[in-house]
Simulated scan of single mutants.
Amino acid sequence: MNWLATLVDYGIIGILLLLSILVVTLATERFLFFRRLDPAQYTSRNVLELHLSRNMHLIGTIAGNTPYVGLLGTVLGIMMTFHTISTSSHMETEAIMVGLSLALKATAIGLVVAIIAVALYNLLVRKTKDILLQWDIRHER
């Protein structure tokens, strides 16, 4: 069952760290785009909205799914713990604690990534709405 510990430690947590890097990269790109954007250059609100919302779905998808990836790590860590308990002739506290700590670590990292992704997504959605409202005000007839 050592492969399961490796899967949780490097696989699940590695995926979560990769997703966190992806979220921060996408959000940074969006914030830089918003900073240099001049809404007055757009004659169509739809084109502006299309440019503003680029890659936002990825941030939202990551925000929605990272708790489940963390939960998968939790389930695998607990499965490893139960397997260790069932195959041992005597219960080793150390082996049980390793499995449970892996499970909790995966959960914690999944929640941290999700919280950051949701916060960034909400900030970007709000900024997008502000820019669109500015465009609407400028182009009122």
Rank of each mutant, 00 (worst) to 15 (best):
Q41I: 05
L58D: 07
L76E: 03
A114F: 04
I59K: 00
D136C: 01
T87I: 10
M1Q: 05
T87F: 05
A117G: 08
P67E: 02
L58F: 13
A114G: 03
G64F: 02
Q41N: 14
T25G: 14
I109P: 03
S88M: 06
T43P: 06
L52H: 05
M97C: 09
L120V: 02
M97R: 14
Y121S: 13
I131E: 09
F31H: 10
T28H: 09
N2R: 11
Y68P: 05
L120A: 04
T28Y: 09
G99L: 03
L132G: 03
R138A: 15
A63M: 02
I59F: 00
F31L: 12
G99T: 04
S86I: 01
W3Q: 15
T66N: 04
D136Q: 05
R54T: 07
K127S: 08
T107L: 03
A95M: 11
A5M: 11
M79Q: 06
G14K: 11
K127T: 11
L19M: 11
H90T: 15
V118D: 11
L7Y: 11
L48V: 05
N122H: 12
R36C: 06
L72W: 08
L100C: 04
L124E: 07
I15E: 06
S20C: 14
G70R: 04
S86K: 08
K129A: 15
Q41S: 14
V69I: 14
S101F: 04
K127E: 15
H139M: 01
A103E: 02
R35S: 12
A95E: 12
Q41R: 15
G64T: 01
L102M: 09
I62K: 01
N55I: 00
D136G: 00
G60Y: 04
V24I: 15
I96M: 13
L102A: 02
S88P: 07
V69M: 04
L111E: 04
F33W: 08
T61C: 11
P39A: 03
T87W: 01
M97K: 10
R54L: 10
I131P: 06
A27S: 12
G99K: 01
R138E: 10
S101N: 08
G11I: 05
I59D: 02
E29I: 15
V112N: 06
L18N: 07
S89C: 07
R35V: 10
L16S: 06
L4R: 08
W135R: 01
T93F: 08
R54G: 01
T87M: 11
A40T: 10
R141A: 13
T43Y: 13
W3M: 15
E92M: 15
L111Q: 11
N122Q: 10
E140N: 07
V112M: 14
H90Y: 12
I78T: 07
Y10I: 12
